[in-house]
Design a binder for these strands. Structure first.
Length: 796
DNA sequence: TATCCTCGAGTTCA
DNA sequence: CTCGAGGATA
């Protein structure tokens, strides 16, 4: 009766034939598009046919085909889900986490099959264990009739209307050998990128975000309104047969999956048939390595004895099959409880809330802390002390509190988290600037935490690089009052260090081996003193970076060192001069000038120099600074209200900065009144005339000191930007970066269209992906070296 | 003015 | 590695 096209032709029968043809064709296109990922017709054409079918169906409502794609848009809401009893129960598998679990599994299988004295290895079907929801789909005579969740394994919920909206699930099976009844077992899940898009939509709509793809899939499936489910992109992979009637059962599990594929049911391409315990472990390892790059989340792999006859022979122990094992990866996500929310004080005084967690294993490591970033973040996630939270340690290494499990919040509810109003270390006020996300301790260097962090930063590898001066000792030195500022580091004596170490050990209750033997660790102290002394001549940019000026990192420090050449000049450079340097704007220039305007900072630097610290490689300012010392640019850089560059030019026509500094009346230049007003206001402020005069004087002084003509800066890699990622086989990223910079290239941290090359080593992550997406050339270490070698040849 | 690109700063664990 | 925010640019 479903074959309407064989009916004699009359007007409605023509319609019926057309309907059947449309159903058939649209279903084929859905399969091509969603399962094969290879669309064969344009979307517009699909939409046209879809609308035509809808129209025909509305004219013949009684003749609508059971597998019509129009049913996929979602049925009207239902009051509740009906219960469904599974004809064959949906059992769970035994789990294994360790290699020995796999050994035991293989051994028991061999014993069960009487193979244990035999050399023959067992063939296993290995597949992914998707992190989704188990589902049973029932097909009668090839037509999809019912879908049920796993439930308790014996009874589940009828989610037919929702599953109908999942495009990858065929409403009619393909091919000639259609069984009378087929119950397909498989997993419904959401791909990672669809999940990200869904969450972005939820966020925009002000709706609750889902914690992970699994929850998103579950939430979508539990919609009583299937029209909502239809808007969520769910997927399905089939992995087994629940019930089969009226067709021959294939001989092996891999045969079942191949048959599914022919029936048009989606099966994962990652499936494999392997032999023996080594084959299983090889598969596990291979999938584990590629886990992050798979488009969906998996929580392990599944092994099944491939021959179904063997499976029957092995049978079940209690409720789990003896022929299958789920080999799970260490969980990347775990539930744990927030014991407390503390705050940390950073180098810049940034107050960062940190969740102290009941230790839990995530992705194979034990997590006890997780940053909550800032006040807004805590508020947004509404994390409270005592909450049960989902902790994740995904692609990156750093654990993150994903979401709170609200159902498990203690009763009575703990209070909403409030950031402390005063610094927990020094008691100074905590202030949060308007428009900033971060709250800061206002104590500055009088706050012990900030002092410690400042010293830690100073001693760091990319700054002064004092080896052996770790957190533990810095804490101790500050607490023993041996160090107040960084200069004190260079005044330490062996006796100081020994005192300090004794205290540090005592406080932590440890007795090092050397001490127990009655020795004094003088060797250790001498080594550390040596490391401190060895740091006395850093390149200027490192010293500048080490000072810990706000907004001055590695890159800005290098700009300052390259352009200005000496610490002396940086120390007295006014903001306007800094501002004309590349990549330095108003905020950064002000921050630097303010730092050096602080008398205590200047004294600290003098003290440092007095101990013998002397930057290496100081030089006269860069020749190109001449072009930057344009009077108009400098005047505009002064940040006088409303004085834009064209106005500055107008103002300076036929005049010098010096002239301006002494001018009394500004209304004579034909400038608009508002600007004249602003200018007069600025000039009236005490000190501003001096700023102008000093700037002009410094300019003249610099122009005299500058070399006349610059050597052509044409390095071989000039203008090329590199991004380094992953672990290179023979050199560190820093070393590779130094080579690139020596050749005139630039090394940057993030990939964009402007990146010339990405140099990727082992375990390269998102940067490599992005390079691929943007079509940026990717080199390995050999490629980079080849490029550099080629350049050298050209130069010779 | 909006958008894109970089830089700075903070972070976890073995 | 990721976020926020500063700087450059169309």
């Amino acid at each position: 009766m479903s074959d309407a096209s064989s009916q004699p032709a009359s007007l409605p029968d023509n319609d019926l034939a057309r309907m059947a043809a449309l159903v058939e064709e649209l279903n084929r296109h859905i399969y091509n598009y969603h399962v094969l990922d290879a669309p064969t017709i344009p979307d517009a054409e699909y939409d046209r046919m879809f609308r035509e079918l809808q129209e025909l169906e509305s004219m013949h409502p009684t003749r609508v085909s059971p597998d019509t794609p129009t049913s996929r848009v979602g049925a009207a809401p239902i009051p509740e889900f009906k219960q469904v009893t599974h004809a064959v129960p949906m059992l769970s598998l035994n789990n294994g986490f360790q290699i020995e679990d796999v050994d035991n599994f293989d051994r028991r299988v061999r014993e069960g099959l009487d193979l244990h004295q035999n050399a023959r290895e067992v063939a296993y079907a290995a597949e992914l264990k998707f992190d989704g929801l188990a589902m049973s789909l029932r097909y009668e005579n090839g037509v999809f009739v019912q879908a049920a969740t796993r439930g308790d394994g014996y009874t589940g919920e009828d989610v037919t209307a929702n599953i109908r909206t999942v495009r990858v699930i065929p409403l009619r099976l393909h091919g000639p050998d259609i069984p009378d009844v087929l119950e397909v077992r498989g997993e419904v899940l959401m791909f990672k990128d669809d999940f990200a898009k869904l969450n972005a939509r939820q966020r925009e709509a002000g709706q609750k975000e889902f914690a992970n793809p699994r929850n998103a899939a579950a939430g979508s499936l539990r919609q009583l309104d299937a029209r909502i489910t239809a808007q969520r992109k769910l997927r399905f992979f089939a992995y087994g047969i629940g019930l089969l009637e009226g067709a021959e059962m294939p001989e092996s599990h891999s045969g079942v999956l191949d048959w599914f594929d022919r029936l048009g049911l989606p099966v994962s391409k990652e499936r494999a048939v392997v032999t023996g315990r080594d084959g299983l472990l090889g598969y596990y390892k291979d999938i584990g390595a590629r886990r992050d790059s798979l488009p969906y989340e998996i929580d392990g792999v599944v092994y099944k004895v491939d021959r179904l006859a063997d499976q029957r022979q092995l049978g079940f122990v209690s409720r789990a099959p003896r022929f299958a094992l789920a080999h799970k990866f260490p969980a990347e996500e775990a539930l744990t409880v927030v014991q407390a929310i503390d705050v940390q004080v950073g180098r810049t005084g940034a107050i960062t809330p940190v969740a102290r967690l009941v230790p839990v294993s995530v992705g194979g490591v034990t997590v006890t802390n997780a940053t909550l970033h800032n006040e807004d973040e805590v508020r947004r996630k509404d994390v409270r002390v005592g909450d049960t939270v989902i902790v994740r340690r995904a692609g990156d290494v750093i654990p993150e509190v994903m979401a709170v499990v609200l159902e498990r919040r203690p009763v009575p509810q703990p209070p909403v988290y409030e950031l402390p109003k005063t610094c927990p270390v020094c008691g100074s006020h905590v202030v949060r600037e308007e428009g900033e996300a971060i709250a800061r301790c206002s104590g500055g260097l009088s706050c012990a935490a900030q002092r410690k962090e400042a010293i830690r930063h100073f001693a760091g590898r990319r700054m002064m690089d004092i080896e052996g001066l770790g957190d533990r000792y810095i804490d101790s030195l500050v607490e023993c009052n041996l160090i107040h500022g960084v200069a004190d580091l260079y005044k330490l004596t062996q006796a100081d260090l020994l005192d300090m170490k004794r205290l540090a050990d005592e406080r932590e209750g440890v007795t090092p081996e050397t001490v127990r033997q009655g020795k004094v660790p003088t060797k250790w102290a001498d080594n550390l003193l040596g490391a401190i002394a060895a740091s006395k001549q850093p390149p200027l940019e490192r010293l500048l970076f080490a000072l810990g000026i706000r907004h001055v990192g590695e890159s800005t420090a290098k700009t300052l060192a390259d352009w200005l050449g000496s610490l002396a000049l940086v120390r007295r450079a006014p903001a306007a001069l800094l501002r004309v340097l590349p990549d330095i704007g108003g905020t950064v220039a002000e921050s630097i000038a303010e730092f050096f305007a602080e008398e205590k900072n200047q004294r600290a630097i003098d003290a440092l120099l007095a101990t013998g610290v002397a930057p290496r490689g100081e030089h006269v300012p860069k020749a190109q600074l001449r072009e930057k010392l344009d009077e108009v640019a400098l005047l505009a850089a002064l940040d006088i209200p409303k004085l834009t560059e064209p106005r500055a030019r107008q103002l300076l026509a036929g005049r010098t900065l010096d002239d301006l500094a002494h001018l009394r009346v500004f209304s004579v230049f034909g400038l608009p009144d508002t600007i004249v007003g602003a200018l007069e206001g600025w000039m009236a402020q005490p000190g501003n005339r001096d700023i102008l005069a000093n700037l002009s004087a410094l300019r003249r002084e610099l122009l005299e000191a500058l070399p006349e003509e610059a050597a052509a800066p044409e390095g071989g890699l000039a203008g090329k930007t590199f991004v380094l990622t992953g672990t290179l086989p023979t050199m560190s990223r820093d070393a590779a970066g130094a080579l690139i910079e020596a050749a005139g290239g630039k090394v940057s941290g993030s990939v964009s269209k402007k990146t010339s090359y990405v140099v990727a080593g082992a375990e390269a992550g998102s940067k490599l992906e992005k390079a691929g997406a943007l079509g940026v050339t990717v080199l390995d270490e050999t490629g980079l070296l080849a490029l550099l070698a080629e350049l050298n040849e050209k130069q010779e």
